[in-house]
């Protein structure tokens, strides 16, 4: 994996979030070891590829929510926003027949636009983020159905659309290595997001908003503007997830997406980002998303009932937050 050190406003924060990310990473390794021993066929390389591919969408959505959560907010709209942007991509590419880059740019830009509307509702209308994005979740779901006529939009007229997710371009460089492009896109988004959060003014303000919004305001930060930008970025990243999911299914499925926001928030929380804001890392979220898909995959390969798999995932979330609380007390 990539460099996992992160910088944040204070030393205390570095220690505790690094520690918890390390905890999450250790949990991931333990899970991998456990399933390798007890689940036959789990450890095969092809299955590792399956797991990475299955993580891509949730990982990217998790990164989107990470931005908002660190800023002290929450974004419940990421799942249906993903679906809406997938539909937008379908409208541009299939219905309007525009070239692929326009579809990609359109989906991401539209996600950014819708996300920033959530931001306006939060920053200017003072609607609590939970409510504003709950509303946006429904608006995005409704619009996805309206724009698509409640029918899937197919990408058969865009033969290269598969490049965005299931196809393995790395095989051209390294023959024999099969790794879906969606996995590289997830890591690309995560690295980019890490850089923005840790090396840019925007990132510094996002942490500042989440730590103490009033202090940020008093020290001259234009709070509203940065909030709107934060939600806008979340929407743009949802656009990337929309491209991934529609590319893999070769269709924008307008009814999909509800419930994905909870998986994304779970990945963020397991990865050590504090729901209270001001603290968290993108790489932690990616590790959190991996923990969830390793659990799902491993329990399935072992033949554990679906129902119990859901119970175990719930337990992991609670344990992760408990660790977060303990670590915060210590620091």
């Amino acid at each position: 994996m990539t460099d996992t050190t992160q910088e944040a406003p204070t030393n205390k924060v570095i220690t505790s979030s690094f520690l918890q990310k390390a905890v999450a990473f250790v949990v991931l390794i333990i899970l991998l070891a456990f399933f390798s021993i007890f689940a036959p066929n789990f450890a095969a390389w092809s299955n590792m590829v399956n797991i990475m591919q299955a993580t891509a969408v949730n990982g990217v959505l998790g990164v989107a929510v990470t931005f908002v959560i660190i800023s002290g907010g929450i974004d419940l709209s990421v799942g249906t926003m993903m679906t809406l942007t997938a539909v937008i991509s379908g409208l541009i590419l299939t219905n309007l027949g525009m070239p692929l880059p326009v579809g990609i740019a359109g989906a991401i830009a539209f996600g950014g636009f819708m996300g920033s509307l959530s931001g306006v509702a939060v920053a200017k209308l003072k609607i609590p983020p939970f409510i504003a994005t709950l509303g946006m979740m429904q608006i995005a779901r409704g619009l996805a159905l309206v724009f698509s006529g409640a029918k899937p939009i197919y990408f058969n007229s865009t033969p290269n659309y598969g490049l965005l997710s299931p196809e393995s371009s790395i095989s051209l460089l390294i023959p024999g290595l099969e790794m879906p492009n969606s996995v590289f896109i997830m890591f690309g988004v995560a690295i980019l997001a890490s850089i923005v959060l840790n090396r840019s003014i925007l990132g510094r303000y996002i942490f500042a908003l989440g730590s103490n919004e009033e202090a940020a305001r008093l020290s001259g930060v234009v709070v509203d503007k940065w909030k709107i930008i934060t939600y806008g970025i979340s929407g743009m990243i949802c656009g990337v997830a929309g491209l991934l999911v529609s590319s893999r299914l070769n269709s924008a499925q307008p009814a999909l997406g509800l419930g994905y926001e909870l998986d994304a928030i779970a990945a963020v929380v397991i990865g050590g980002t504090s729901l209270a804001g001001g603290r968290g890392t993108v790489m932690g979220t990616i590790i959190g998303a991996f923990i969830m898909s390793v659990l799902t995959n491993g329990l399935r390969v072992m033949g554990v009932q679906e129902e119990w798999k859901i119970v175990v995932t719930g337990l992991i979330i609670i344990v992760a937050v408990y660790i977060d609380i303990v670590l915060r007390k210590q620091s």
């Binding site: 092809s46 299955n47 999909l256 898909s293 799902t296």
Partner: peptide
Amino acid sequence: VDVQYANDALKAADTIKTIMQAHP
């Protein structure tokens, strides 16, 4: 050899690949 549940296309795809993995 297996009966699994998945309520959308994306989850079904990942579930089925897992079933194939468990039962070569």
